[in-house]
Each structure stands twice: as C-alpha cells, then as structure tokens.
C-alpha cells in the first residue's frame, strides 16, 4: 500500500512562513529562494544507484552548483534520496532515518528499485518500492538514472518546494503543467561526444586538469607523453590492428544478436 501524498500536512506552519501565511512578502520570497536553492541531500545510497548519486555530486555533473550538498547525517538534511534496493532487513532503518530528518522534508525515489522494486519486486526479501514506507515527492525512473536525470529530478523538486512554500501547490487533479515539468534532463557534455574534436578536448583538459604536483606529465615535457603509442608487443600475435580499430569492419552479427 503506497503512502498517499494527502497524508502529509502541507498546512503545517513549517511548510510555509510561520505567521505570514496571508501574503507572500519579500521576506518570504527570500526565504523561499533560500530553501529552494539549498536542498541538502541525505544519500540513502544502498546500491548501484548510489554510485550514480556519487557521480552526480562529483566533478563532471557537480550538483553543488544547485546548492545540493550531500551530508552524512539525516539531521542536517532536507531531502532523502533513496537510491537503491531496500530490503526487508533495511526498511526499518530507512524509516528510522526518515523520522530523524527535521520537517519540512522531501523524498526522491531514484531508480526503479526505489520506485517499485525493479525486477527484484517479487523476491522474498525486497520491499516493492520505498513508497510503501515513506511518502515520495519525485520519482526518477531508470536503472540507474543518469546523473542528468537526477539533476532534472532535483530541479523538479525545487519547483515543488517553491510552489508549496508559496501556497500554490494545487491538489493532485488540478495541478497545472509547469514549465519545469516539460523540461528534459539538462545536457551535460561528454568528453568524447561527437561535436567535440578529441584533440581540442585533450588540449583543454591538459591545461586545466592537473593537480599541479609537477608529476610525470609535466616532467616529461620534452618527450611528448600523449603521442599515440607506436610500440607493438610480441605477445600479441594478430596483425592489422589499425584497420580493425578504425572501424572498416562490417558487423553482420550486430543486428542478429540485438533482439535476444
């Protein structure tokens, strides 16, 4: 049985400005702006989706720029991101941690496991979705969702926080489509995406990425370390490697096996 969203008391003073429920004053706006842009995340990272959650916090995607910081304790956090499978043994602990989070609090179900249990749904030890235990605000499908999708989910949650605090959160049936709801995931460029020449990327990265330790890269400046290696090994007994790697190969098997 899923926990209905109506269980949650949005009338509670904590969800709006205490004592200022009449109109949105500029103070309220300021506080809403602050609350929206500093969603601190409690990472309930149990399994594989947790790795993507880490990747979202890490350098390429950088969720920090949205004010989203992962904290280690539930008592400092606004959002619980449930990333991964929740088992029968783990579920009471998740509930306990959820109860330790101060109001107002939100929950994101990240990945199929947290939404419905994924293909483990029918297994004796897995609970079929975290919404059997705690109310969920945003569902992010995927196995695992890409970091982009998690970012999109966080943006959606910001939209919801803004609406709830501003008193604009309509009942479920009358909720209008907002702009953010139509947004797709933000585009985060890949290192090797087709538009970028690999040489340009390499040059950029070389300029920007070193730790500045004067490591092997800098020391070997006179012998360009990044030239394509020409060494071949005797251990490899095949020939004609370059044609293969440059992709002149037709792959008849590709389509045949893809439908398996």
């Amino acid at each position: 049985m899923a926990v209905d969203e109506s269980d949650r008391n949005y009338e509670h003073p904590l969800y709006s400005m205490p004592g200022l429920s009449v109109a949105a004053t500029s103070v309220d706006k300021l506080l809403t702006w602050g609350a929206t842009n500093s969603l601190w995340v409690f990472a309930m990272a149990t399994s594989c989706c947790g790795i993507e959650l880490m990747a979202t916090a890490a350098s390429r995607v950088d969720a920090d720029r949205m004010g989203t910081i992962i904290r280690g304790t539930p008592r400092q956090c606004d959002v619980m991101v449930v990333a991964g499978t929740i088992t029968v043994k783990m579920a009471p602990r998740v509930l306990k941690l959820w109860e330790q989070m101060p109001e107002p609090k939100w929950c994101i179900a990240m990945g199929s496991c947290a939404i419905s249990g994924d293909f483990y749904r029918d297994i004796y030890s897995v609970i079929p979705g975290i919404d059997t235990a705690i109310p969920v605000d945003v569902y992010i499908p995927g196995c695992p969702p890409n970091p982009e999708q998690l970012m999109a989910g966080l943006i959606r949650l910001q939209e919801k926080v803004r609406a709830v605090r501003g008193g604009e959160w309509a009942p479920k049936d009358e909720r209008p489509e907002t702009e953010a709801m139509q947004k797709t995931a933000p585009s985060i460029p890949r290192l090797l995406s087709a538009e970028r020449s690999p040489d340009v990327t390499l040059a950029q990265l070389l300029g920007a990425g070193n730790l500045g330790l004067g490591g092997a890269l800098n020391r070997a400046a006179d012998a360009p370390p990044l030239a394509a290696p020409q060494e071949t090994s005797d251990a490899i007994t095949t020939q004609a490697p370059t044609e293969t790697s440059e992709g002149a190969v037709e792959s008849p098997s590709e389509d045949e096996h893809a439908d398996a």
Binding site: V88, K89, A91, D122, I123, Y124, S125, P128
Partner: peptide, 26 residues
Amino acid sequence: LMLPEDWEGHPLRRDYAINTPHPPWR
C-alpha cells in the same frame, strides 16, 4: 548471515516460493 535472525524457512529450498510475503513490508 543474510536474512534477519527471526526469518522463517530457507529461501533456496525448492518448496520456498520466491514471492513469499513478509508483512508488514511486502
């Protein structure tokens, strides 16, 4: 080792149904 101490049955036996319920969680 894997399951809670108060669990009943041994899941990998043939007569154990894969979707055995475990209230209140599933």
